[in-house]
Write a protein that binds this DNA or RNA. Structure first.
Lengths: 237, 237
DNA sequence: CAGTGGTCTAGACCACTAC
DNA sequence: TAGTGGTCTAGACCACTGC
């Protein structure tokens, strides 16, 4: 319907290359300038097409490196009690975990409020990034009440933190408050996942409540196209 | 740090106007061209700033109408059993509901599969859009197994469908499978919310299971900046 | 170092909205 | 009809990556 040089048609072109398998998931797209030449459009136009397909979750980019074909999203149950590694295994996906930081830090305001402690109190913070099939897609920041988790920093913090809380520290009877929202990554977060500042993410926050007290506060930032959350079997009134 | 004409600084300018209350939530921003003049930047640059702030959830746009300051997100519990209207009332927000379509239609493939029926079978579909404080932010599409919901189309379909299912049709003991993902709006959906095609949304799907059978399948598309989901008190092993 | 995406200019025309 | 955002061109320089 439109003349052939709209960004929609550029996007349609790319899309057909992807759908046809010419460009398999994970593969790198031709550079923007090469695409301009090949399709006879200006660079802005080509970029608009990329941004459009990025929004569709069909392609993603690594900052200043290039555009890539997005793999299928990871399926994830945020109410899970088992480790993410198991979930990855059952989906036949490779999960890598990298510890970025593990330290005793002054409680950020929001965390202090959740824990019901003064803002100057020190808490434990574990910061990790995780990759699915080689792509960094998840940033985890977990805060722990220090008194409840003695020697936490000496544990293996690249394994399941969930299991640690449940088994090593014995917090089995617990409730969770879960929040899900769409949040852009700030500069630091973006750098850690090698994406641009402001990249859209799905933020999952989880407060673990034991005996009416919040003892763990987690925040997960997932690149928006890499994740799909599913919760099964909730019973309601 | 950077020279003053980057889109970051344009964004910072706008942001300060918004934060200072000069531009209250819901108010219209100056037009792009006026901003270019006022700040001495090119239009592409101004637009990049807008897109950045849009990603931050600070402003939103109505297609071809203009940019507006985004109000605070609506807080929402997707596991709720009460009506959304009540939830809006308790947050002091106005909720409008408009029925777009209510009809008997051939089951789409995905729905047929969920219901466990042949794809040619007819099912009931109710399509609505909803506004929070005057802004269209939600598109609801609900499918019902026809046999389980006699005369559904004759009911008041602008009120709580949840209450209808529970009270009028008596489905009290039920389970829900919930899915949450980030999805762009297609052309039709975008038009109904007066936004651009491809606008990011949070998709919430909910399958209502009664006696192991799926009788209702809903999909909600929320504009990504207008919603924050919170689930309280989940108990886990 | 060459090549990539990231940012930016100064224009232009089109599609649509509100009046 | 006037004004809006939506699309588009043909250039340019910068910051960063990988080699």
């Amino acid at each position: 319907m439109n003349p052939p040089s709209t960004y929609h048609s550029v996007a349609a072109n790319l899309q057909s290359w992807i759908m046809s398998g010419e460009l398999p998931p994970g593969s790198k797209l031709p550079s923007e300038r090469r695409l301009c030449e090949r399709l006879g459009v200006s660079r802005v136009n080509a970029r608009d097409a990329m941004h459009f397909l990025e929004g569709q979750g069909l392609i993603y980019r690594l900052n200043r490196i290039g555009w890539f074909v997005a793999p299928a999203p990871f399926i994830y149950d945020p109410t899970r009690t088992h480790s993410l590694l198991d979930e990855a295994k059952s989906q036949n996906r490779k999960l890598d975990t990298e510890l970025i930081q593990a330290a005793r830090v002054p409680a950020p305001l929001a965390i202090a409020r959740k824990f019901g402690i003064p803002a100057t109190t020190e808490v434990l913070n574990v910061l990790r990034r995780r990759a699915v099939d080689g792509r960094w897609v998840l940033l985890e920041s977990c805060y722990y009440q220090e008194d409840d988790f003695p020697n936490l920093l000496d544990q293996d913090l690249t394994a399941s933190l969930n299991a640690l809380v449940r088994n090593t520290y014995g917090f089995k009877r617990r409730r969770q408050n879960i929040g899900i929202s769409s949040k852009p990554l700030d500069q630091v977060q973006a750098q850690q996942l090698r994406v641009r500042e402001g990249s859209p993410s799905l933020k999952l926050s989880r407060d673990v409540i034991v005996d009416g007290r919040c003892v763990v506060a987690e925040a997960e930032h997932w690149l928006h196209d890499a994740i799909e959350m599913r919760m099964r079997g909730r019973t309601t009134g």
